[in-house]
Design a protein around this nucleic acid. Structure first.
Lengths: 189, 189
DNA sequence: GAACAATTTGTACAAATGTACATGTGCTTT
DNA sequence: AAAGCACATGTACATTTGTACAAATTGTTC
């Protein structure tokens, strides 16, 4: 039939990519090696180099996946919102909830930023990611507000991960309210 | 006299620390090695290991210095402000101006975050840094607003460094105005 | 100026790493 | 069933790395 699976372990490549994120999360990019990845994926060393010409390629692939997943996730949550108020609620939930801003994700973000700074293709994907987030936000808010909210998600996320006592949900809501304005910049669709 | 300098190259240790930041900025923590640092500082390899027992120690020392410098710099700028309005102006300048949010500093920040996540002592210093920033801001704003502004500096800084067209100063001012409130949460001293 | 301790230097080496590659192994097509 | 091919595996190896260390050097103290 059409495009049948090739051989034995059809999802091996994908598994390697996913496991790479685990390794990065645990050891950092600095401590990420072919052998650790191979061990984590339970495949022989040669298998890792078979699918990815270079270690950088593999790490890049892993980060690309992370960016795309995050981007989709964010867009999905925003898409579920019907009006400005529920959009604001979604933002608050994204920042406060340990669903998205999990320690692991934050940590991977730091590694991603650092990595992207030295790998233009990855940087390009990050730009798309940011752009998508903004587009999603601009369904409910004007461009400037969208950017501010986007930055806020980033900033509070980071600070909360470092801070001993993270901001509470109510506080976050207050800030979001201030940025979006109680009665200015309407532009519903 | 009291505590005279020991030997030949009295500032060697300090120079090594500073040069380490250069190396990290250029190659990332991943690409930072004893030998590169030695070359950049124009000292023999043995000299690097003489002052710092381990490479991690050295990198940690370098990041600690970065954190302290940044912290002082931020506090100083805030201290110069006399009232809320000039404080707001200072914040806008910090975000927009390429003085503090230079590509190098941002890049080093990413590396620092990632590094701190795996090195508790460095994480502790980062907490102090954040705490200091907030205290500086709380001279002019209530605690919640201070946190929001702090996060905003972080978030916009990052996004601007990735984005193709950074936010203009006017836009930043608008957002800062919204967060600080035009006529709410006064608390001058 | 001899003893001393703090620095300085060059070299050595075991461990880890990225990558290459020769050799299997099992589908699929002819 | 033979051939072809994509995938799989284990091993090999040149490099790079962190770190140790013995030997020199230099200022300071007595």
């Amino acid at each position: 039939m059409s495009g049948g699976t090739k051989r034995k372990d059809p999802e091996r490549r994908q598994r390697i990519v996913e496991v790479t994120l685990d390794v990065v999360a645990e050891y950092g990019v600095t401590g990420t090696t072919h052998r650790r990845i191979a061990a984590a994926a339970a495949v022989p060393l040669g298998s890792v180099t078979y699918y990815f010409a270079t270690l950088d390629d593999l790490i890049a692939a892993a980060f690309l996946q992370l960016a795309e997943q995050s981007s989709e996730e964010f867009a999905k949550r925003m898409a579920m919102a019907g009006d400005r108020d529920s959009a604001k609620a979604a933002i608050v939930a994204i920042i406060a909830g340990s669903i998205w801003a999990t320690p692991r994700t934050l940590l991977l973000s730091y590694e991603l930023y650092a990595f992207a700074a030295r790998h233009p293709p990855v940087a390009a994907v990050m730009q798309r990611w940011m752009s998508n987030s903004r587009v999603a936000l601009e369904r409910f808010f004007d461009p400037l507000t969208a950017r501010a909210l986007d930055a806020l998600v980033e900033g509070i996320g980071i600070h909360n991960s470092i801070d001993t006592e993270p901001l509470e949900e109510d506080s976050i809501r207050t800030i979001v309210d201030r940025i979006t304005g109680i009665n200015n910049n309407f532009r519903q669709n």
